[in-house]
Design a binder for these strands. Structure first.
Lengths: 197, 197
DNA sequence: TGATTTTACTAACGAGCGTTAGCAAGTGTA
DNA sequence: TACACTTGCTAACGCTCGTTAGTAAAATCA
């Protein structure tokens, strides 16, 4: 009862298709009948594999949160300058975002359809993640490796640039995820001015 | 101070309340009965003032689009360096975003619930607006006032930072809209590195 | 083999959805 | 006064929603 492989695969298939629909139409505007049709099933059949519609959303949101934490931890565990750690953290974030753009979009926009207490738990995780980023930026400011009037503000702007990515990124574009990660890090750290102005 | 002025038409009140609900719960997850209750009405009464639920969304989305275009035009019509124009355009964009955060959030996230052909028209407007920004950045690159490997990429990142604002901005925060506009422009143009570099 | 689990079906439930029709009270205008 | 316009009500329409119950074929495994 712990982990039969074939069960997992059908469930994962449902999650995957649902994620794509949630992204394209939103959680509330996606019906279970629509999801079932996309999978070649009848609506009722879905409930042999999942308990509820929200369960899918829950799994997507919390699963991705875990990936973000893992990426950040790996990026900052290696010895490097603060600026180097920030760059690695940015690239790790971008890597998670681009690994599954649909899931990322759902993670970023559909979490508010979680009901309590999941919603609050999710927001707490999100705040914890942002706080980690903020602390890293603050260390950079203290060490003189970064310059900004306010760590909180700088961090918000930084994450903003990253989190808009799923709205325009296409896996078949000419820039690879690593290209994008590098350019984003460059632009955010160096700005748009020549020689930094 | 924020009490509804008696001069505001019932229609405008409906739009305003609906915008707040659409922002908090999403368009699809907000029912007309819920909207009516928030206004102290019965559901059917709404239809003495509006034709449909989508009509409200249409008005919010296209109304804000017009504001963005007006802001950009005013920002770039004044004679200034390219960098100065970009700075003004950024600040104009932020000013529109902060004037009505709820409407901005709806504009940014709920437009996909527009049905055709409104949806395509909206996307065309959006693309036109981004193209204007992109052209401005490109002129900056050509004139040597800005530095980036790619105007399109730089523009996306720039607008990304701006458009994330409605998710965290609170009108009663300690930063005024103009403060925010200035800081955002600084950070995006100069980056996080000390002295640029 | 037989037992069990997995997978999917049909049919239906109660609830809520956006919207409409018809009516009535209040308000401004001539 | 009479008329029109605005505003809001009640009641209901056809429809879709997420979910459940009960059943059964197929796959898995002892």
């Amino acid at each position: 009862m712990t982990s039969p492989a074939p069960t997992r695969s059908r469930k994962a298939q449902i999650d995957h298709t649902a994620t794509a629909l949630f992204r394209a139409q939103g959680f509330a505007a996606t019906s279970m009948r629509e999801l079932a049709t996309a999978l070649g099933l009848e609506a009722g059949s879905l409930y042999s594999h999942i308990k509820s519609k929200e369960e899918i959303l829950h799994r997507v949101c919390f699963g991705l949160a875990q990936e973000f934490f893992a990426g950040f931890e790996q990026a900052t565990s290696q010895a490097a300058s603060i600026g180097g750690q920030l760059r690695q953290a940015i690239e790790a974030h971008v890597r998670v975002l681009t690994r599954d753009v649909a899931a990322s979009a759902v993670f970023l926009h559909e979490w508010r359809h979680l009901s309590e207490p999941a919603r609050s738990e999710f927001l707490a995780l999100r705040e914890r993640y942002e706080a980690q980023f903020r602390a890293l930026v603050q260390r950079g400011l203290d060490a003189g490796e970064l310059a900004a009037p306010d760590a909180a503000f700088a961090t918000l702007t930084l994450l903003a640039s990253l989190n808009w990515l799923p709205t325009w990124y296409r896996p078949d574009g000419k820039l690879s995820p690593d290209d994008i990660a590098h350019r984003l890090a460059d632009q955010l750290i160096n700005g748009l001015s020549p020689m930094g102005e």
